[in-house]
Design a protein around this nucleic acid. Structure first.
Lengths: 329, 329
DNA sequence: CAACGCTCCGCAAAGGATTTCACACTCTCC
DNA sequence: GGAGAGTGTGAAATCCTTTGCGGAGCGTTG
């Protein structure tokens, strides 16, 4: 039923070999023949069966993409970037959502490994050891995590925190709370590191709250501790937590930013839609996805390319309505 | 490098044919042999090359999934449902995001068609004609859209609107605005239909505003028209528009729900996180995804199964903070 | 004892594309 | 005019798995 290389060969009056060459290495076939073949292929709307090709070339033209939770608005941005770049490179993308289950991650890599040329692992939750294990199975690129010398795209969390703290201290805040994300999270550790550096440099004071789940309810739960800590500003591990904070503060009748400033991380679309809108450290999610695919495809072309296998992307503070001058009291 | 059926055959001291049979049709091979083969396969961690299998069986074990925009929080829910169900059935999922481009949809179907057993089309934007065209290429299931007799999973929009209007009229609202989504949207047409029925049944009055883009800014843009219409309640085509409404109303100092009630559609996660939280008609997104995969897999097993190729899922009004009694004035 | 039937397994073909190798042909140059 | 180089094409092998067909071996029956 589907049109095969033989059909094209018959239509063009040549052998399958020639069809293959005319389409994949045109310079090897005489101009006249080439055109005849290409015309026949176009007329029949022929495109090679990728499975059959993969069988012999060893390349499938597919990429795997594993994310912890599509429901977290951070990920769709990354996924879109990956999608777009992969399509440009004529690759299809297998998507798998692990529901935040580290065990499922490793399992899925193993399953996908045989069907793809490489896998993009988005904010993987599994241990370093497991990660090295699966990296031995198939080419892998890490997004938003760094482990040893494995290829990875990350954000400059430290500089992001510097921007955040600079913004807050410029507004007169001297005592700042941080609502921590999961201890196992690499990006949380990086953000804490950057935060401590920036706080120390500014001579300010830091109060750490948490860790909490990086979800709305985590922020809700942390809000009262933040208030009890007597700070004038709070930085959340991510925007979703910050939104939870805003919600609870609002419910308790605390004015934002008049009484307390709130600052998030990620710049998910939602952040601009709430009231007050959320000041946040923006991460280039789409670029991250694109860069990840670029890196992976590069690695596939030239497997021993060391050196540029890791990239760090810049961040940008988005100042909105949830931060303001420290209360003069 | 990868372990093939021959490796297993050698290890077990049988032919590749026997290995294949022992693993896929165990009853055809003697118990003793079967166990030996299965043990060897397990030891070598063998699993059949799906591309090679697909080449001969004609089934790839892959499904395609096309969504207009992952950034719209409605879709990740559906995608997660699809993911989960597909994985249970041991199928992998190709994901493609069209960025709301109807032309890309048709193109992607054509590209994916050869690599998958069937495709789930999520809220497709393309025309009925194109839709029928691509349905001829490969088995297709529609989600959130109905066209002729094509297999489809939809929501009971009419009943959803009935619930919404019943809720509002019970609160004393008599004059209600509707902010319409895109004219080309099937679900918008259905919602309008249900709305008119319910409004007529309740003897209330309807003011239609829009259509606007189904995005935050669309809601922002519609808010002032809604206010000018002198209504006491407004129903939005979807939650994202409703959030835009809330934002603009808040900016203009209009109290919600004291001065005006706002009601959305979809129940995206965000709706519960804003202030006031959004009353909305909840759609079972995950179930929708699961049902779509079920339908598709059923169709693949038995291609001539007419009758149960279309399902409509119930909706559930989620009453939250954005709706209240009509102002007594 | 011969014939038949059954079970279990191996051989070989098939599926679609790529690639190596060899063949045929043209052209050049001695 | 024939040897050699170079170009363009086809035949056949290969990738890995599945499956129709047939053969070997054994047990049963007339």
């Amino acid at each position: 039923m589907a049109v095969t290389i033989k059909d094209v060969a018959r239509a063009a009056g040549v052998s399958p070999s020639t069809v293959c060459r005319a389409l994949s290495t045109p310079e090897l076939v005489r101009a006249e023949t080439r055109e005849r073949v290409q015309r026949s292929a176009a007329e029949l709307d022929y495109s090679p069966n990728r499975a059959a090709r993969g069988l012999i070339t060893g390349r499938t033209g597919n990429l795997g993409l594993i994310v912890p939770d599509l429901g977290n608005p951070f990920f769709p941005g990354v996924v879109k970037g990956i999608q777009a770049r992969a399509r440009e490179a004529d690759h299809a993308v297998f998507l798998a959502d692990t529901d935040e289950d580290p065990a499922a991650e490793a399992q899925l890599v193993r399953t996908l490994a045989k069907q793809v040329d490489g896998i993009v692992l988005c904010s993987p939750r599994m241990s370093e050891q497991e990660l090295r294990g699966v990296a031995a199975l198939t080419p892998v690129v890490l997004l938003n995590r760094r482990v040893g010398r494995l290829p990875a795209i990350t954000f400059d969390n430290v500089d992001g925190m510097r921007q955040a703290v600079t913004h807050l201290t410029a507004l007169g805040h001297r005592r700042i709370a941080y609502v921590a994300g999961p201890r196992a999270s690499w990006s949380n550790r990086e953000r804490v590191r950057g935060l401590r550096l920036a706080i120390a440099a500014a001579g300010a004071e830091l109060v750490e709250v948490g860790p909490v789940q990086p979800q709305f309810d985590g922020g809700v739960a942390a809000a009262d501790q933040v208030l009890a800590a007597g700070v004038t500003a709070v930085i959340a591990y991510n925007d979703v937590i910050a939104l939870g904070l805003l919600s609870r503060l609002n419910a308790r009748g605390i004015a934002v930013p008049a009484a307390i400033s709130v600052l998030g991380f990620d710049d998910i679309a939602l952040s601009a839609m709430v009231h007050p809108s959320l000041t946040t450290v923006g991460l280039p999610m789409k670029s991250c996805g694109r860069a990840g695919v670029d890196l992976l495809l590069g690695l596939l072309q030239d497997p021993d390319k060391f050196g540029t296998t890791r990239r760090e992307l810049g961040t940008q503070l988005m100042v909105r309505g949830s931060t303001g001058p420290a209360p003069s009291a």
